[in-house]
Nucleic acid binder design. Structure first.
Lengths: 172, 172
DNA sequence: GTTAGCATGTAAGGAGTTACATGATTTT
DNA sequence: AAAATCATGTAACTCCTTACATGCTAAC
């Protein structure tokens, strides 16, 4: 895939929020090339009428063997770096390519993290409820509600994973 | 209030996520002082045994008249800058000090924004549902669920505001 | 009197954005 | 042939964090 296409796809998948600008995308691609994780694909010689020099057309990249290894390493990570706010969504999005045990450990780590946040919010709310104006209260309760729902969601996912690991083989 | 206290309070109110480091807090306080929005409070002459020069103790700041005006301006903003992801929470947290009409406009703007996001997610999901693996699908549906809940939450708040504006005076 | 925690600040740097500059290809 | 859009890339800048440096105050 080439840079422009990558960005367009990320925009449609992730929405306009959480998309990268070219100013960060292209330098990242360059660094990945320098690291040897991706390589410029040899252009199809039959396809285009190529300009003779200083080409500035499409550059199609492809994962190298090293890149695939690096990706596998990233997907095998199950520590805090995999269930932090920033990273969890990315790891989850690649779950179909992630080992079942790793999936389970990431989900459990994420749940523990969110439970901690929930407990912190509950404690803060219990301490300050009396002094809060209705809007601040409403905001805190809405936040608490969101984390409680996320805990339930994660619990359902964990139960499904467990059921599948101790029985049928994982689907998909 | 002084900087350290401000940071401690923000930590407990906002949680460890979304708290400022000293490296951004103190420069911001300096800029606010230079802009004339806050001023160093005259130290109580009776209170402390002060060092003679180059003092490095507590610096207590207080909003100036200009600062209060600036705050009032910020609270009166009802355009997109008030219901963007980043700003909405802050504006909402100050709703108790915000005009009823402004509150209503911010809530409606925020709802419109979230509805757009919801519609975008629905459309993307309808287009790609077949091709998505179960985890990606689960993630998208969870995201959709979250925005749908936020729309309902905002609708309740808007209804309450409307009821109060055309009847009893606003509470709190 | 020395450790722990309160309190203020700066310097260096990371991670990204915006705005710009440029060239290639497709559509009208 | 002009306009739109595809496609790549850089430079300057913004905003924030980390790590450090410093001094004050209370507790043991």
């Amino acid at each position: 895939m080439h840079g422009y296409e990558l960005r367009t796809r990320l925009r449609t998948i992730l929405g306009t929020f959480r998309a990268f600008s070219y100013g960060s995308l292209y330098p990242t691609l360059r660094r990945m090339r320098e690291a040897g994780w991706i390589a410029e694909e040899a252009p199809d010689p039959a396809a285009t009428s190529r300009p003779l020099a200083g080409r500035r057309g499409k550059v199609v990249y492809r994962l190298t063997a090293e890149g695939k290894e690096r990706l596998a390493d990233l997907l095998a990570e199950a520590g805090p770096e995999a269930y932090d706010d920033d990273a969890f969504g990315v790891h989850f999005a690649f779950f179909a390519k992630t080992d079942a045990e790793v999936r389970l450990r990431i989900l459990e780590g994420r749940r523990r993290r969110i439970e901690e946040r929930r407990d912190g919010l509950r404690a803060a709310l219990a301490r300050t409820r009396e002094r809060l104006d209705r809007y601040t209260l409403e905001l805190q309760e809405h936040g608490l509600d969101a984390v409680e729902r996320e805990v339930r969601w994660l619990t359902e996912l964990i139960d499904t994973e467990r059921r599948e690991q101790s029985g049928l083989p994982p689907a998909d």
